[in-house]
Design a protein around this nucleic acid. Structure first.
Length: 182
DNA sequence: AAGAAGATTCGCT
DNA sequence: GCGAATCTTCTTA
């Protein structure tokens, strides 16, 4: 998914951000919202891969995930950060005190810049719509990996992936200077 | 029925 | 670097 563009289209206009950082939540993973089985909240994680799972966290922010397994299996990829590509004026309007670099740097910030809310939960991201994934641009970016960020459970899993050297990646610097994976 | 924890961000020290 | 903000969901009694 690194290098793929996330497109948000609303009455306000169109915004495009190129994904530079993701985090995986796999079957059997105690840190996954799907770990304890399907509920009304996490149902989208159990839908066919490419379904949007949007949840509200810390009373303030939304986070965007893409389900990643077949129907009935709970797993997904959290979109942690992106590089603004189109509609930067609109993103700045939605995040007034942000620098260009920080518009989509972090999962909560990204959702705000793209105006993603729980209304987007359950959408099919594989076809054009209010929120969808456009094909990746040509050169496949170099991808590095690290442990996941901000977790208390299964924090040691190496399931975070990001574009090597991108300034639009979130997280502590120490995690972001690791060499690209082979 | 009540309480704690949470895949975060921002501002202040 | 630390703690507050703020609410939904799941767990436990």
């Amino acid at each position: 998914m690194i290098g793929t563009s996330l497109v948000s289209e609303s009455a306000d206009g169109r915004v495009v951000a190129r994904i530079v950082e993701t985090e995986g939540y796999v079957p059997g993973d105690a840190a996954s919202h799907a770990f304890r089985g399907e509920t009304a909240r996490n149902g989208s994680l159990f839908r066919r891969r490419g379904t949007a799972y949007v949840y509200f966290i810390y009373g303030c922010y939304f986070c965007v995930n893409v389900s990643s397994e077949r129907e009935g299996v709970g797993a997904g990829v959290l979109v942690r950060a992106a590089e603004p590509v189109e509609g930067m004026e609109l993103m700045h309007a939605r995040r007034p005190h942000s620098t260009a670099r920080d518009l989509c740097r972090g999962p909560g910030r990204l959702a705000t810049a793209l105006a993603v809310t729980r209304l987007h939960d359950g959408l099919d991201l594989c076809a054009p719509g209010p929120l969808w994934l456009a094909a990746a641009a040509k050169p496949a970016p170099a991808v590095s990996e690290s442990v996941r960020i901000g977790l208390t459970k299964e924090a040691d899993r190496v399931l975070r992936f990001f574009e090597t050297g991108s300034p639009f990646v979130s997280g502590p610097r120490a995690l972001n200077v690791r060499p690209p994976r082979p």
